[in-house]
Amino acid sequence: MDISFVIEKFVLVAIIFGISLVIAMYSTYAERKVAAFLQDRLGPDRAGPFGILQPLADGLKMFMKEEIIPTHANKWLFMVGPGLAMLTACIGTAVIPWGSPITTAAGRIIPLQVTDINVGVLYIFGVVSLSVYGVMIGGWASNNKYSLLSAIRAASQNISYEVAMGLSIIALLLVTNTMSLKEIVEMQHGWHWNVLYQPLGFLLFIICAFAETNRAPFDLPECETELIGGYHTEYSSMKLGFYLFAEYINMFVSSAVMATLYFGGYNYPGMDWVLTQVGPVIAPLIGTAVLFAKIFAFIFFFMWVRWTIPRFRYDQLMHLGWKVLIPIAIANVIVTGIVIAIVEKF
């Protein structure tokens, strides 16, 4: 392993980490702006031009707040909770291919992906499942009934929707025949996006993604009307900031995963023509820009839905998860399998 490889990966990791933090930071701003525009308001516009310094002001406020740890809380786990939430949110980006490999003038190929493991889909799936531990540990360690109820809700919700999510991915894997995210993206070259072959699977996946990221209409773990603040009722200062931040990073990661799995990742119609026009260094960067455009579109969709649909009741949530999504997902797997078998036969 040569040193340039290490430097290359280190730089890539640092860039991706920085980008995901900045995007999460500005998601808070975008959320408030989108909410305001959808409600015929202006949103924050005092800090800097158009209020673009608002996230910095919010961050500063979070840092300045008094740090309170409840007397009867489990101190160790109380501190681990937000850190775990943040960690699991950040490591998900490692397997996402951010662009096609760049071929430099010296003939060196730089892949724009931190690591291409052959079970990339499973890795994402595992990381997403882990993310609920931050919520559960924080909720339990707070020693507060509301936090505990919220943690229980988060756990049961994530377990319920992971099943449907996994089944929708199985249908996708039947189509792609691989679990490597890089190969999945490369198969979707041009406009052969998986959403065209798996529209129902995509619908199931996006519904489950809303549930997994605890976003509205599935934000039961933090519904203020029932649970005060939810699992972070007892949290203050930057620990609370970490929880809120982790939620936005999760949103970014699941948007990236959706764009990668179903919407062609960095592929776009006419990419071969662009490649011949601008050369092998610029073309992958355009692809990366396209991927980020898709991600931002999904993030916008997350926010748009949040300000449209009211929160589900708990029994409705469970009904939707177990009695609707899972049967549809199973049917989707079976139909996909049959269609593939027929196509291969003839």
Binding site: V34, A36, F37, L38, Q39, D40, R41, L42, D45, W304, V305, W307, T308, I309
Partner: peptide, 21 residues
């Protein structure tokens, strides 16, 4: 119904704000 709701909210996205600075 979901699509209808989304259409209503996005139509408000392009409306003029009622706020006066």
């Amino acid at each position: 119904a979901l699509g209808k709701g989304l259409a209503i909210t996005i139509s408000h996205f392009f409306k003029k704000e009622a706020t006066i600075r």
